[in-house]
Structure formats: structure tokens, C-alpha cells
Amino acid sequence: MPRKQSKSSARPLKAIEPTSDAEVTIGVASVTLLVMVLGALSASPVWLLGLLVFLPAAASALCTVRQTKLVSAWTALVVIVTMLVRHGDGRPWLDRILMMLLTLALGAASVYACHRRIRREHEVLRLRSTAAAMQRQILRPLPMITDDVLVDGVYEPVQEDRLVGGDIYDVVVSPWGTRILIGDVQGKGLPAVGAAFAVIGTFRATAHREPTLTALADALDASVVQHNAYAAQTGEDERFVTALIVNIDADEEVQVINCGHIPPQLLRDATVTTPALASGVPLGLAALAAEPATVDWFAFPPGATLLLTTDGLTETRAADGTFYPLAERLTKRVHLSPTDLPRALYDDARAYAGGEDQHDDVAVLSVRRSPYR
């Protein structure tokens, strides 16, 4: 297994910061003072009911239960005292009593609503914490260091609240070198995530066992076929997965099988080249191919960097509809370290799209050959 995982690609999950007591006090005092001034100017207590009733409702949305109770109690106290003191304004006592009861009812409803809100927030936080723990097991934190390479990168699902998407990656140390997988499941949503889990699980189980990349690719293809068989039984759509399967060992060459995926970019001596690879069919479609998957080789000397990405980056569009020119933008950033390069490309793609929300999952990995090998 990789020797080091120093930081996580998952976003940190934190509970929502509650409103401080000082902020609540200032807010309540300000609104109360405003109501008193308006009440004095208008000589009518209607302002009290019209404005003060918003205080408990606002507190239920922003404050803790204790703070909401205090705000509701203060609101009820101000309204009740005002209704009892202003007995000479000609308003019937029945109206006064109804106003006081309404204030108490709104306060109680606000406290109950605050209870419900906080309980939902805690449930959501627990669910997201569980999802984050799952992501750390499914998509291991980056960077990852082996005897052969340093792998770093960026992983950004299309939906911010979904920690795992249809793009996948993994790094496994095998007896035959460091094996790296990057892939993209057809489609989006939970069905795509299911196919992603199937491929990652098979990769981890077989990368240690299969001595050749072709046998590993066959195992991954079989996992997608099996997943599709189960999906068909439940009425879900079948999926295929584009993938790059990479093997890096002590030799100054890298072995790659391209299963219909975007080819890698090789950064070497301040130049960027795209290795010529035979593009096979995606995982899950091998039965339709005329020939089996083939292994390509190309030079990967010490100090070189291999950039692996999914089409979430390359298919980012500008306002005029043009795709993100990865090779051109990459040439301007060859001076960046492998650790900084993936994030720089991702941020540049977002700026290229004019800051619009991304429309697909994005995974960008930089694979740096150890200079000491």
C-alpha cells in the first residue's frame, strides 16, 4: 500500500456556527428599541405585534434552542406588559388577550421549529460525516507516495454536497510496480457511483494478484459486466467506464492500457507531449471489441510527470462553447510542482468557463517519477 497519505481530498465537515449571545442581545435590543419608537410615534400597539413577532421566528432559524426560548420570553414579556399598561387607548380587553395569547403561541411555535431545525442539521451532519468516511475508504486521500512515484491531484464532484461522483482513481503497490487507475463512469448520480464502486473494489483486489495489465483490464471489464447484470435486474441502466490503467516500476518506461479514456500528458524537460496510445473500448464493452486490450509503452524517466485527467476538465466550455485547451494551458504551467499543478489547472478551467458551475465530475492526477529511481 502507499506509504503516506498526508492530506485528504474530502472537504472538511463542520457544524454550523451558532449565533453568539452578544449578537442575539444586540439584535433583540435593536428591534425592541425600534418597536418602542414606532409605537410611541403611532400611538398604537399594532407595531408591537407586527414587528416583535418576527423576533422568535428569526431566532428559530438562526439561534440555539436556549436563545430562541429567551427571545420568545422577552417578546412575550414586552407585548404583555405593553398591553396591560396601555389600558387607556380604547382597545377592548378581548383584543388585548388575543394579542397576548397569539404572541405566546408564536413563541412556542418558534421554539418547536428551532428544535426541529437543529435536529435536522445534526442528522445532515451525521450523514455527511458518514459519506466523508466512505469517501476516504473509496477514494483514498491525496497525495499518495510509493517507492516509484508521488501521486497528487484534485477530485471535485459535480454536486458540492455529493462527496463521491462518477470519476474514480486509485493507487496500488503491487509486486510488479505501482499501478494507477483513473476512470470515468458513464452518466451521473447514484447508479454511476455504484459502477464506480465495482471498478475500484476489483482494482484493489486484483492489482496485487494479476501479473499483467491485460489480465487486470479483463478483470475490471468483468466487474462492470457483472454490475450491469445486477443493474438490469433492478431496472437500472447499464453503464460503461472509460479508464487508464498505468503500471510504473523501476524501469524508465511506463506501461499503459487505454480503455477509451483521455490520453495522458507527459511533462518532461519543460515540454508537454501526448504519448501515442491505442485506444481500446471502455470497460464493460470488451465483448464488442474486435481485438483484446493491448499494452503501450513509452519513456517515463526520473523527474518526469504524467498528468491523468477525466473529461470533466477537457470538456469545460467557455462562453462561446469552445472546449478547454488542456495542452495549451498545460504548456504555460510546466514550471509548477506536481503538487500545485492539478489545482492550478482546475482553477484555470473554472475561470475559463466564466465562473459557471461545473457540469461534470473532475479528477486530475499528477504522477511524478521519483528522481532517485
Results as ranks from 00 to 15, higher is better:
101 L>I: 13
90 G>R: 03
266 L>H: 14
26 I>S: 04
211 P>Q: 04
321 G>F: 12
305 T>M: 14
192 A>T: 06
283 L>Q: 00
116 R>G: 00
63 C>P: 03
321 G>S: 13
30 S>E: 06
264 P>R: 03
42 S>E: 15
91 R>F: 00
224 V>K: 07
366 S>P: 02
361 D>S: 00
12 P>H: 09
343 R>S: 00
310 T>Y: 07
67 Q>C: 04
56 P>M: 13
281 V>R: 12
45 P>S: 06
171 V>G: 03
9 S>N: 15
243 A>M: 07
132 A>T: 13
55 L>I: 08
50 G>L: 09
276 A>Y: 06
15 A>D: 08
373 R>H: 06
164 V>M: 11
156 E>M: 05
87 H>N: 12
103 T>N: 06
53 V>S: 14
112 Y>I: 10
348 D>E: 11
243 A>C: 08
182 I>R: 03
301 P>D: 15
336 L>Y: 07
197 F>M: 13
178 T>N: 12
5 Q>E: 14
129 S>C: 01
74 W>Q: 15
367 V>E: 10
46 V>G: 05
216 L>H: 02
306 L>M: 12
28 V>P: 01
198 A>S: 14
203 F>E: 02
328 E>Q: 05
131 A>H: 04
360 D>R: 07
59 A>D: 07
228 N>G: 02
24 V>G: 00
113 A>R: 06
7 K>V: 02
40 A>T: 12
300 F>I: 09
151 V>T: 12
198 A>M: 10
31 V>N: 09
189 G>F: 09
61 A>I: 09
123 E>W: 07
131 A>M: 13
306 L>H: 12
186 Q>H: 07
57 A>E: 14
270 A>P: 01
359 H>I: 03
77 L>P: 02
110 S>Y: 07
243 A>R: 03
277 L>Q: 01
286 A>N: 12
190 L>V: 14
235 G>A: 04
224 V>H: 06
165 G>L: 02
349 A>S: 14
206 T>S: 01
71 V>M: 11
152 D>M: 01
198 A>L: 00
253 E>A: 11
164 V>N: 13
232 A>C: 09
196 A>G: 15
280 G>K: 13
137 Q>L: 03
137 Q>E: 12
308 L>V: 03
122 H>L: 04
31 V>Q: 08
320 D>G: 12
182 I>S: 02
325 P>Y: 14
283 L>D: 09
322 T>K: 15
191 P>E: 11
33 L>S: 08
248 I>V: 15
145 I>H: 07
100 M>Y: 07
250 A>H: 15
339 T>Q: 11
70 L>T: 11
359 H>P: 00
316 T>G: 03
2 P>Q: 05
110 S>Q: 06
243 A>L: 05
10 A>F: 02
30 S>G: 00
107 G>L: 12
87 H>V: 11
208 H>A: 02
73 A>E: 13
141 P>K: 06
64 T>V: 01
186 Q>E: 11
215 A>C: 09
214 T>I: 14
259 C>W: 10
210 E>W: 05
55 L>N: 15
132 A>P: 04
38 L>R: 10
231 A>L: 02
266 L>Y: 05
207 A>E: 01
295 V>F: 10
185 V>R: 04
239 R>Y: 13
70 L>P: 09
